[in-house]
């Protein structure tokens, strides 16, 4: 690593560490919360990137794994069954359970590609959500549409993250504690993604993505490799689901709609499928942008002296236009994988 890239890395590290404090001081709690959610989305997008970006399997039901992780945490750490298991048990458990669901989704879809696969995964996502919605009778497990509330707040060993700590005169409230917990999770996810990408398995996934029939005729066990991609991707979703439940204190089937799956897919595609930096950027941008656009009402008042268009409608319109523009201007994603970039620019 040369001096310049080392400088950039250190700069990025300082920025990431200082960001929540600066945001807290300048924009307030609410914005740090948005950053927390952005990190959860990064985790989800990295997971989906394994399935879509590495193995080339289009998954439109990814939010199901997020839901599995979230309900796993919610049911075992809440008054629902009066269980209060700790985080270090529930996160691996959620990851494992999500992986099992990944295999469950993968098995019937092994022979499917492209659009057909997308339709089945879409159905799977909806099935999970509808199950969660209806598993309150005959035996009440999920509490149905009311969801599970009063979920135990996240705590890591002796540190209760809902407390405000003071370190050397700096106030560290809940949202910043959470930020650092999520940051650790994202860091681990990035490391794992990098390892996977460069591994023998990562290359095999790339081969399946490029030409599945040729991969099979080369002696690749395409069945197991595809199931592994679904399972690995799902674990990321499971972990972020657990973190989400503990952070929110409340989960309901409402949070796991198709729109969420589509959003996560957009993050992966817009950021740059298959490239970790791109996926991270896509997730941060698409989770922060809708919030930033809430300021449109204020902007109108400032420019025209009155609010012309309902800002909540305008926000979605501008967001949609931004998505379309990004796809038109950079169809390969903001930070594409190198090979993909070349393909797009050769054909132009």
């Amino acid at each position: 690593m040369n001096a310049r890239s080392r400088f950039i890395n250190w700069g990025a590290a300082v920025l990431v560490l200082a960001l929540p404090f600066a945001t807290h001081a300048l924009l307030g709690q609410g914005w740090v919360r948005i950053l927390d959610f952005a990190l959860l989305y990064v985790l989800l997008a990295l997971g989906l990137n394994i399935v879509v970006g590495y193995a080339g399997l289009l998954d439109l039901g990814y939010v199901a794994f997020f839901a599995v992780g979230a309900y796993c945490y919610a049911l075992f750490a809440s008054p629902q069954f009066d269980l209060h298991w700790p985080l270090w048990v529930l996160l691996p458990m959620g990851a494992l359970l999500a992986a099992c669901f990944g295999v469950l989704l993968g098995t019937p879809t092994l022979g499917l590609r492209g659009d057909y696969l997308a339709i089945v995964t879409l159905g799977f996502g909806e099935i999970i959500r509808i199950f969660l919605n209806n598993l309150n009778a005959p035996v009440n497990i999920t509490n149905g549409p009311q969801g599970v509330s009063l979920i135990d707040p996240l705590h890591v060993g002796p540190w209760f993250l809902e407390k405000t700590y003071h370190v050397g005169g700096i106030e560290i409230p809940l949202v910043i504690n959470i930020y650092f917990l999520f940051l650790v999770a994202v860091g681990l996810a990035i490391r794992l993604s990098q390892r996977l990408e460069g591994s023998r398995i990562g290359r095999a996934w790339a081969a399946i993505r490029e030409d599945e029939l040729a991969a099979a005729s080369m002696g690749l066990n395409t069945r197991n490799l595809k199931l592994l991609a679904f399972a690995m991707g799902a674990t990321f979703g499971g972990v972020s689901g657990g973190l989400f439940a503990g952070f929110q204190g409340f989960v309901s089937p409402e949070s796991f709609t198709l729109q969420e799956s589509v959003m996560i897919l957009c993050m992966v595609v817009l950021g740059g499928m298959g490239n970790i930096a791109g996926v991270v950027l896509g997730a941060v941008l698409l989770s922060v942008l809708p919030e930033a656009l809430r300021g449109l009402g204020g902007l109108q008042e400032f420019l025209f002296g009155k609010v012309w268009v309902d800002p909540s409608n305008l926000r979605l319109l501008v967001f949609g236009i931004a998505l379309v523009l990004m796809m038109l201007l950079r169809p390969e994603g903001l930070l594409p994988a190198r090979a993909r970039q070349r393909e797009f620019h050769e054909s132009q």
């Binding site: 095999a204 081969a207 490029e210 991969a215 080369m218």
Partner: peptide
């Protein structure tokens, strides 16, 4: 089998393609 239409893995390097043949 050398499949019809070659079926090379476009985004892998030549050496990576070759190693894929010895995957098992």
């Amino acid at each position: 089998l050398v499949p019809e239409g070659r079926g090379v893995f476009n985004r892998l390097t030549i050496e990576e393609n070759l190693l894929m043949g010895a995957y098992h």
